[in-house]
């Protein structure tokens, strides 16, 4: 039972981090970056192929590469597409996502690459009389720490203030001196770091990394963003968390019908979009204004 609760929280936390990364980029440039999935994937790949190095070194390499890739996406592609409208940007990010998947396939092969990453994490410890895996505790701790850091960054720093202001009204933010190019690049960099952390968390649980490794979690994080409200970072993170918890619960309680968990989740998304396009955290119809 404790394990089930921990699993739900750690899954929720993971999706919250992914949702936060997507939400940051969406906030500043109204782009749903499908290729966020490939950021998570590259982090996982690098952790697998550098598994011989000490874990910390391996993670730092993964984080640096992932962040560079995120910033490169912005500099080489999204920056040039700014102003073409959200539909074009969405398709471009979809295209970039597929492109990177194929590149990974060429580099790493279509078959999963795998390595035992931090094997000590799959051990178990006794908590309140029940045995739980170290990895689920570690995940919960990591996500809480990262969410706190992200919360501080967003709520208390000048960069965070600029990110929030730009998400509300980029035009006015620029009038006040917010440098759009730098700010958007910073948002991509932060989302890259978050993706690297998410990659680390998921690869410990599931070390079978294939080209489409990050797609599932990204789609679910997107679902979370829509549920929580895409126009607020807090809503995005909360929505991501809810999706993780709901999915855990559906998996526990649907029994044999658990294969349809995604259908229920997507139906929930459809209903929420129709009733409240801005997410459950928003006032009705907030989406119309973004």
């Amino acid at each position: 039972m404790i394990q089930a609760i921990l699993d739900a929280i750690s899954l929720g936390g993971t999706y919250a981090l992914a949702a936060l990364g997507l939400g940051l980029v969406f906030g500043v440039m109204r782009l749903v970056n499908f290729a966020h999935a490939e950021l998570i994937t590259i982090s996982a790949y690098i952790l697998v192929v550098t598994n011989d190095l000490p874990l910390l070194v391996s993670f730092i390499i993964a984080a640096v590469v992932t962040t560079l890739l995120a910033v490169a996406m912005e500099l080489l592609i999204y920056r040039r597409l700014r102003g073409t409208g959200p539909a074009i940007m969405l398709i471009a990010s979809f295209g970039l996502s597929v492109l990177l998947q194929r590149v990974y396939e060429l580099i790493f092969g279509a078959l999963p690459k795998s390595a035992a990453i931090a094997p000590w994490m799959s051990g178990e410890v006794k908590v309140a009389g029940a045995s739980v895996t170290i990895s689920s505790i570690a995940t919960v701790v990591i996500t809480i720490v990262i969410l706190l850091i992200a919360g501080y960054l967003i709520e208390r720093t000048s960069l965070g203030l600029q990110l929030r202001a730009a998400a509300i009204d980029f035009k006015t933010a620029r009038l006040l001196g917010v440098r759009s190019n730098r700010l958007i690049a910073a948002a991509f960099a932060i989302s890259g770091v978050l993706a690297a952390i998410v990659g680390f968390i998921v690869v410990v649980e599931n070390p079978q990394v294939s080209p489409m490794y990050g797609v599932n979690i990204t789609i679910l994080a997107l679902v979370g963003i829509v549920i929580g409200g895409i126009s607020s970072l807090r809503g995005s993170a909360l929505g991501g968390f809810m999706v993780g918890v709901i999915l855990s619960l559906l998996n526990t309680f649907l029994g044999n019908a658990r294969v349809y968990a995604y259908s229920w989740l997507f139906l929930l998304v459809l209903i929420i979009l129709l009733v409240r396009p801005g997410g459950i955290m928003s006032k009705a119809n907030e989406m119309e204004r973004v």
Binding site: I219, V226, I230, V269, L273, M287, V290
Partner: peptide, 9 residues
Amino acid sequence: LAAGIATFA
């Protein structure tokens, strides 16, 4: 965007 996500769902 809402239309894009909803159709994706």
